Simulated scan of single mutants.
Amino acid sequence: MSESEATDDPIGYFLQDMVYHGKSERTRTEYERVLRRFESFLADPDVNPAGRSVVPADATHRDCMAWVHSLRGTVASSTVAIYAAYLHRFYGYMTQVGVFDSNPMTLVTEEMDESIEKDPTRRDIDVPTMRAFVADVRHPLHRALVGTFLKTGIRVGELCNLDLQDLSLDDAELSNAYDLGGRPQLDARPNSLFVSSNPTVGEQHNGDVRSASNKRKRDTVIPIDDELSQLLKSWLAIRPDSVSPADPLFVGTSEGWGERLTPNAVHNIVTTYASEVGWYRSGGGATENVTPHYFRHFFTTHLRDRTGDRGIVKYLRGDVATDIIDTYTHNWGGQVRETYESNIYSIL
């Protein structure tokens, strides 16, 4: 995008640079939604304080402050703070690269009362209620997605990056049909899932350019219980052949037939079901919305309460230090699998 194009459409310029910085499609979509909403506010003389159409480059701190104020009462206060942070970053970046002269959001954010909740109190869903939710998910792919989230606590990007070689299932018929469990980390560990720390957005992994990054600090092997095994087998029975040489575990069955699912596609699947039971609404924050990330919270909370072992849960989440994770890696069957199988909740 040229300098003149950057001036004509600074939001488009910013979003293009986000691509170069490796930001996910979902993140860019969220930024665009918020920034275009701000742009529309500025362009409407009936709602902005200037009383005339204003472009983002000419917005003052008063214009920004008025937009933030217009959000209050329409979204949660923490969401107001998130939207303001998006706008602040936009102006900060455009000022830094020399397209804008100054950042009008600096003063606004200093004066704001709202704060982004770092650890929000999320919707409290018990296991029986979640079990009823899963019962209403009928499509084998969707059931396998939700089941994998609930039984493993992995992130949406990590789920999308799973390949058939990352899955070990003790099933002779499936093993003949698919090249499962090719990872050396899965040797002597039947019925388990390998989650790598390596995949990075925009880079090749196992011969396939990835649309998301895995954020865990270390490779992790997660046990698969009978319920998740059942859900995965039902999915593999109808899984289309993949167009990717990496053979993704989860691929599209409608748009993008046979292509690796993206985080955005998985997010839409989950939130569609959540909307039907009143667990998701557009503009809702983390305190009320059930998204793929909510399942990680659910897994962490319920498994930690059942095991009383924070170390095991941290190992399964892939967010522990080397010395701790090595302890569980060396005694995986006797410590990780036994603890997991003794305490994992039922979702079917």
Rank of each mutant, 00 (worst) to 15 (best):
S213R: 06
G157A: 13
R218A: 13
T95Y: 04
Q185M: 10
R310Q: 13
D179N: 10
Y20F: 12
D241H: 10
A212V: 00
G308F: 09
R52I: 11
E276N: 13
V221N: 01
G182A: 05
R138G: 03
R138V: 15
Q165K: 10
I324D: 08
S4Y: 11
D163W: 01
H293P: 09
T74G: 07
A135F: 10
F14M: 04
T74C: 04
K314D: 13
V97L: 08
V243Q: 08
V55M: 12
N331W: 08
V320E: 12
Y328L: 05
Y86T: 13
L167W: 04
T60H: 06
Y178Q: 04
G51L: 08
G283L: 05
G308Q: 06
H69K: 13
L303K: 04
R304N: 11
L164Y: 07
F298G: 02
T329Y: 09
G157T: 08
Y345F: 15
S78I: 00
I82N: 10
G181Q: 05
P184F: 09
Y20K: 14
T272S: 14
N343A: 15
G283A: 02
E39L: 03
G12M: 04
L107Q: 11
E117H: 10
E3P: 10
T220D: 06
G207S: 02
I82D: 08
I324Q: 11
A237S: 15
M130K: 00
H205M: 06
P248I: 03
R310T: 14
H297K: 06
V80N: 00
F14T: 00
F149Q: 08
E173L: 13
L162M: 12
L42T: 03
L232G: 02
E255S: 11
V277G: 05
V68G: 03
G252Q: 03
V195C: 08
V156K: 08
L249A: 03
Y20L: 15
N289S: 05
V108A: 08
I154E: 01
P45W: 02
R260A: 13
D179M: 08
F100M: 08
I344H: 04
T271D: 01
E276L: 14
N268D: 13
F90M: 07
T129G: 08
V266T: 01
S342F: 09
E25A: 14
G182D: 05
